[in-house]
Nucleic acid binder design. Structure first.
Lengths: 205, 205
DNA sequence: TCACAGTACGACCGATCGTGCTATCTTGTC
DNA sequence: GACAAGATAGCACGATCGGTCGTACTGTGA
C-alpha cells in the first residue's frame, strides 16, 4: 500500500479545522458539531472540510485527539514540571483551574462534557475519550503515589480514593464555573484542594 | 384570558411524552432530543407530540421540570426522611448512588449532563437547570449546617466547602459510572463520603 | 343530546444534516 | 515547465430537523 503523502497547505488547513472543531464541540457537543457550521466558521465549503476526514466520526476522532493534546499541554505538562509528589498534585489542579479561567474552550473542560455525552454511545469515539480520561486519572494517581512514597502524605492514604476526590473537585469546579461564570468557585476549589492535601492555604495570584 | 381547560386523555399522553423525553434526553441531550424520535418512540405522529408544547423550547422546559420531579422523588425526598443532620448528608449521597444503579436514566444523572450542555446557551432552559442545581446544593448545604449545629460535624467545618466536595464526589461517581458501568466506583464513592464525614465505613447492602 | 374545545393525524414547508461525485485549482517533483 | 496528486469548491442526494396547516375524531360540560 502506498503511503499517501500530504501537502503542506493541506496539513495547515487540517490543523485549523481541527482547532476550530474543538472550540465548537465544547459548546455544541461532539454530536452537535456539524460540518456545515465548521465550514462557515472557517470560510470554507462543506466539501472542502469534509474531504479532510471522509466521515463525521473521523472528524470527531481528530477533534478528541486535538482536545487531548491541548489538555496535556495546558494541564498535565505544567504539573509534570513541578517537583515530584505533592507539588505535582497541587500543580495539576491549579493548572486545571487556570485552564478554565483562561477560557481555552468556551464550554469549560472538553472532556467533562464529552464523557457524559458519549458515555452512552459505544464506538471508537467513546473509547478514545475513555482512554484519555484514564490517562489523566492515572497521572493524578501517580502523583499521589509518589507523594505517599516521599511521605508528603500519610502512609495510609489511598491513592485511588484521593484521585477520585481530586477528580471530583475538578468536575464540581468545572460545572459551577460553566453555569455561573464566577471565578470565586475556582478560589474555593483551590482552597479545598490545599486543605485536602494538608497544605498551608496560600493560593497563588 | 380564558384558562384553557385540558382533557384527561390529553394530560395522560402529555405525561407519557414528557416521561419518555427525559429518558431520551439523558442519552441524546436536551438539544439532541428530537420531536421525531420522541414521536416514533411513543408511536405517535410528530405533530401530535408537537401540539402539546408548541415549541421545542417548551418541550425542553417540560422535560427539565419532569427530570427535577424525578430527582426530588428519588434523591432528595429519601434524604429528607432521614434523621436531620449528618444522617441526611449520608442519605442524600447514598440515594444518589442508588439513583444511578437503578438506572432510572440510561445516561446517568440528567442534570450533570444538562448543566454542561446548556451552560453555554443562555435562555429559560439554562435558567431552570441552574435553579434546580441551586436547589440541590442548597439542600445539601442545609443538611451540613444542621449537622454542624447538632455537633455531628466539627464547628469549624465550612458548609459551603463541604457541599462543594460532596457535589464533586457525586459528579465524579456519575462520570465514572457512565463511562465504565462498574458498580465498584459507587462503592468507592460511598466509602469516600463516609470517611469525609467521619462515619464508620459500613456501607449498606 | 349537542356543541365545542381539546386531541391527534398526515401532508407539507424551508433549512440543514452527513455524504457522495465531479471539476477546477494548487502544489511538489522530475 | 510538464505532470501527477492533493486540495478545495460546486452541486446534488436522501434523510431529518423544527414548525405550520387543515381536518377528522372524541371527551366533556351544558
Amino acid at each position: 500500500m502506498v503511503a499517501k503523502q500530504k501537502r503542506a497547505d493541506g496539513e495547515r488547513t487540517r490543523t485549523a479545522i481541527v482547532r476550530e472543531a474543538v472550540t465548537l464541540a465544547t459548546v455544541d457537543g461532539l454530536e452537535g458539531l456539524s460540518i456545515g457550521h465548521l465550514a462557515s466558521a472557517l470560510d470554507m465549503s462543506k466539501s472542502g472540510v469534509y474531504a479532510h476526514f471522509g466521515s463525521k466520526q473521523e472528524l470527531q476522532l481528530a477533534t478528541v485527539d486535538e482536545a487531548g493534546q491541548i489538555f496535556r499541554r495546558e494541564v498535565i505538562e505544567p504539573a509534570l514540571a513541578a517537583a515530584p509528589g505533592l507539588a505535582q498534585l497541587v500543580s495539576v489542579c491549579d493548572a486545571f483551574f487556570d485552564h478554565l479561567v483562561r477560557r481555552t474552550f468556551p464550554g469549560g473542560c472538553f472532556f467533562a462534557g464529552a464523557v457524559l455525552e458519549m458515555g452512552t454511545r459505544p464506538g471508537p469515539v467513546k473509547e478514545e475519550i475513555a482512554a484519555f480520561q484514564l490517562e489523566f486519572t492515572a497521572c493524578i494517581r501517580q502523583f499521589a503515589e509518589t507523594a505517599i512514597e516521599r511521605q508528603e502524605l500519610p502512609a495510609d492514604e489511598d491513592p485511588d480514593a484521593l484521585t477520585f476526590e481530586l477528580n471530583g473537585i475538578i468536575l464540581a469546579a468545572n460545572a459551577s464555573y460553566v453555569l455561573r461564570e464566577d471565578p470565586a468557585v475556582l478560589d474555593m476549589a483551590r482552597t479545598i484542594v490545599r486543605r485536602r492535601l494538608n497544605i498551608a492555604a496560600t493560593s497563588p495570584p
